[in-house]
Write a protein that binds this DNA or RNA. Structure first.
Lengths: 154, 154
DNA sequence: GCCAAGAGGTTGAAATTTGAACCTTCACGC
DNA sequence: GCGTGAAGGTTCAAATTTCAACCTCTTGGC
C-alpha cells in the first residue's frame, strides 16, 4: 500500500461548473476588453483609472495600486508608463517617503474615464450581472471574497 | 433634457461582488499558475493537455481546441509549438481536411499530465471549491454558463 | 469545371508581461 | 551614529500574446 493520499477529484457537477467558470471568465474578459478598446483602453488600464479616481486626491502609491489589482510592481510600472505617455496619469515622487511614487489621475484621465464608465458598466451588466439572479450574483461575491481572503496578498 | 439613457450603475453590493470576483480570479489564477510551474507548465498549457487527454484518440483539431479554450488560433499555434518542442504534444496533418491539423497528446504529455493533475485539482479545491458551499459553487456554474451562452463563440 | 468567399493555420513583427537584478530609502537593533 | 535587511520602484532581457498579412484548401454558386 502506498502512502499517498487518494486524490479527491472533482465530481461531474463540480467539473462542469469549474469549466464553465474558466470559459465564461475568458469570454467575459475578452468581451469587456473589446468594448473598451474604442476608448483606447484595455480592462486593465480601465481598472487602474478607476482605482485612482476613487482615491483621495485621485492618487495612489504604486505599490498600493499594484496590490489592489494583484499585479507585479514591474507590470504596473510599464502600464502606468504608457498611461503617462497618453497623459491619463501623472507620476510624482512622494515627499514623505522618498522611495515612494504617487500615480495620479490627470484631468484628461478623469474625463476619459467618465466617458468610458457608463459604457463599461453597461457591458458588465449585460454580460454578467443581468444574467444572474441577485442571489447567484451574491454567491459569486461571497465565494471570491473567500478566495481572496484564503490566498492572501502576493 | 438629453436623450441619453440614464446609466444603471451597480449598487453598492453588486460593486463589491464584482470587485471581489476580479480580485479573487486574479489571485486564483496566479496561484494555480504558480503551483503548476513545478511541472514546467502554466495553467494555459495544462488546460490544453487536459482537453487533448479527454478527446478521442487524444487529439483535437487546432481550431476546435482554440474554441474550447477561447483563444485565438494564433496564440494556440505558438503555444502548441512550444509544447511540441517539449515533446508533450505532436502535430499531424488531418487527412480528411487537408487544411486541418491535429494536435495530439504524446505519451510523455500524458504522463506529465497524470503527474500534475492530482496536484492541480487539489489546488482548485483548496483555493476555490472547498471555500464555497455546494450551492454557491453551483451558482457559479450556472452564472458563467449563462455568460458563455450569452457572449457566444468568438 | 471555375471562381469567389471563407475556414483553418501559420508567420513575423510589435506590444505586453514576466522575472531577475539593481538602485534608493526606511526601519531597527546595537 | 552605523550596519543590515526589507520595502518601493525601475530596468533590461526573455517569454508570451496580439495583430495583421498571408498561405492552402473547401464550399457553394453558376
Amino acid at each position: 500500500m502506498t502512502t499517498t493520499t487518494e486524490t479527491r477529484w472533482l465530481d461531474a457537477e463540480q467539473q462542469v461548473a469549474w469549466r464553465a467558470y474558466l470559459l465564461g471568465t475568458a469570454r467575459l474578459m475578452a468581451k469587456l476588453d473589446d468594448d473598451l478598446r474604442q476608448f483606447g483602453l484595455g480592462i486593465n488600464d480601465y481598472e487602474i483609472l478607476v482605482r485612482l479616481s476613487e482615491a483621495p486626491d485621485r492618487r495612489l502609491r504604486m505599490a498600493d495600486l499594484a496590490d489592489r489589482l494583484h499585479q507585479s510592481r514591474s507590470r504596473l510600472t510599464h502600464t502606468v508608463g504608457r498611461l503617462e505617455t497618453a497623459d491619463l496619469v501623472r507620476r510624482t515622487s512622494c515627499t514623505s517617503d522618498k522611495r515612494g511614487v504617487w500615480a495620479e489621475l490627470t484631468e484628461a484621465g478623469l474625463q476619459l474615464l467618465e466617458q468610458a464608465a457608463p459604457y463599461h458598466v453597461e457591458g458588465v451588466r449585460e454580460n454578467l450581472v443581468d444574467l444572474a439572479t441577485p442571489e447567484d450574483f451574491a454567491a459569486i461575491g461571497r465565494v471570491f471574497d473567500a478566495v481572496s481572503e484564503h490566498i492572501g496578498q502576493r
